[in-house]
């Protein structure tokens, strides 16, 4: 299939269309509001479900298959924030704090984008390794730590490192992903079976509801697009393509299947908007949240959802 055809297919999925509906709802100033509690509940669900399935798959994975992709993911987590930081400082001329904050977001990962690429591949019936969810967890934290270290060094600050690290690891997205994985690993596929009518079958539907809300959240950030300027818009589209290609390449080196490499590329291309904003807001308060939230939510996320995912799939063809 042509990339253009894949994009079309992807755009016409209920998930992407629900996101569009959310954007429209905000633009026409609808009184539609998702209660915050429901948003929280849906995100708890998504993270736990991703973890559970990943864990149950991992319980049947041999360590020999797993170590190379895990290592490559770690490399991604360390290198991508450094590259992003340099680009943002040199080419974008951003302040240290703002550049480090953005680097943390783009080095880390978006669990919802992971869910979207899974759904995309399943619709095309392209197989990928079951343990990819584990890589989401591995990719989430290191980039944030690396970016914060860069900022500390550049700004010469000291500060309460232990506390920041604890908050990061006990943060809800890591806790739910790792916790779910741990449950899935111990309970195994038989255990997952018992709760499949909640954590497996409705996954895409719940994701659709979540994306409706995400569309509203992202659209509220559109107003800030002018404020962040052209450079950041370009960064929010090009950086993911670079990181995505890099991720696919590392995936192919690690011996992942083509589907697995597409997932790893998408993970690399995605920008965090749960774990990273929370950590950055506390540890780097002087960084302007308009920059990192708008870039991650209003530029990179919709780009990946609509165009990035089929694009990475197309790009993977060059490595396989």
């Amino acid at each position: 299939m042509e990339i253009i055809e894949l994009v079309r297919l992807n755009l016409f999925s209920p998930m992407v269309l629900a996101f569009v509906l959310g954007v429209v709802a905000t633009l026409v100033r609808s009184d539609l509001k998702f209660p915050d509690e429901i948003y929280t509940a849906l995100s708890i669900y998504l993270l736990l479900a991703i973890g559970l399935k990943g864990g149950a798959e991992l319980s049947e994975t041999a360590l020999t298959e797993f170590w190379a992709p895990a290592l490559m993911t770690l490399i991604l987590g360390v290198t991508t924030p450094i590259v992003a930081y340099v680009v943002l400082r040199r080419l974008g001329g951003l302040e240290v704090a703002d550049a480090a904050a953005l680097a943390a977001h783009y080095g880390s990962v978006s669990a919802v984008t992971f869910a979207a690429v899974q759904t995309f591949l399943q619709a095309l019936e392209i197989p990928y390794e079951g343990f990819m969810a584990t890589l989401v967890a591995i990719l989430e934290v290191p980039a944030i730590i690396v970016a914060l270290i860069i900022a500390r060094v550049a700004l010469g600050q000291g500060g309460n490192w232990g506390e920041v690290l604890r908050e990061l690891l006990a943060g809800k997205s890591i806790l739910l992903l790792l916790g779910g994985m741990f449950i899935g690993l111990i309970a195994g596929k038989a255990g997952l079976e018992q709760v499949a009518p909640v954590f497996v079958d409705p996954f895409k539907g719940i994701l659709t509801l979540f994306l409706l809300e995400m569309g509203m959240v992202a659209a509220r950030r559109f107003r800030d697009l002018r404020r962040v300027g052209f450079f950041l818009i370009a960064f929010g589209i090009l950086m993911p393509i670079v990181n995505g290609t890099f991720g696919i390449w590392l995936g192919s080196l690690a011996g992942l299947s083509q589907g697995g490499a597409v997932v790893l590329g998408t993970l690399a291309a995605s920008a965090s908007y749960i774990a990273a904003p929370a950590a950055v807001r506390i540890a780097l308060p002087q960084a302007n949240p308009s920059y990192y939230l708008t870039a991650a939510l209003a530029i990179t996320f919709p780009f990946n959802l609509a165009i990035g995912i089929p694009l990475y799939y197309g790009l993977a063809g060059f490595f396989y």
């Binding site: 915050d36 509690e37 948003y39 950030r221 800030d224 749960i274 904003p277 807001r281 308009s290």
Partner: peptide, 19 residues
């Protein structure tokens, strides 16, 4: 919890957590 508002700083920062 769950109050919302606007001031001179613009948009609330982290949407995910309630405002």
């Amino acid at each position: 919890g769950e109050v919302r508002g606007e001031g001179t700083r613009g948009l609330p920062t982290v949407d995910f957590d309630g405002q």
